[in-house]
Amino acid sequence: MKKFLFVTRHAPYGTSFGKEGLDAVLMGSAFVPVTLLFMDDGVLQLKKDQRAASLNIKDYSPTFAALNDYDVKDIYVSADCLKERGLSAQDLVIPVAVIDDDGIRDLMKKQDVILSF
C-alpha cells in the first residue's frame, strides 16, 4: 500500500489551501496510510482558539480533532516553524509530534506520494 504524505504550508482563512487540503486528507485516509506534516505558515492551521464565526464563515478547526476518528494518527509539526511564530505544542488544538528539520527530511524519504497544500 502506498504511503501518502500531506504537507500543509499555508495559513488558514487567507487562502483555502488548508481547508481544501484537509478535505483531501480525509478522503485519502479512507484508502491509504496517511501522514500529515505542518510547516511554515501551515502550523497556524492548528492554533487553538480560532473563531471563524467572527468572519461569518464555517469553522473547520474542530475537524482536526476528528482526524483521530479517521485513523489519522501520524501528525507532525515543524519545531522551528512553531518557534519562529512564538508558538509551542501547547498552543495547538490537537496533540502532535514536534520534529526538527532532520526529522522532516527523514519523514519525506519514507513516503511514496507527497501532496502539498
Binding site: K2, F4, D23, A24, M27, G28, A30, F31, V32, D112, V113, L115, S116
Partner: peptide, 20 residues
C-alpha cells in the same frame, strides 16, 4: 468528480506531480 480521483491518481500512477 470527487477528491477520491486525486487519491486514486496517486495510487495508480508512477508519478503524481502537483503544480501549485
Amino acid at each position: 468528480s470527487g477528491l477520491g480521483q486525486l487519491i486514486d491518481a496517486g495510487i495508480h500512477s508512477d508519478r503524481l506531480i502537483t503544480f501549485g
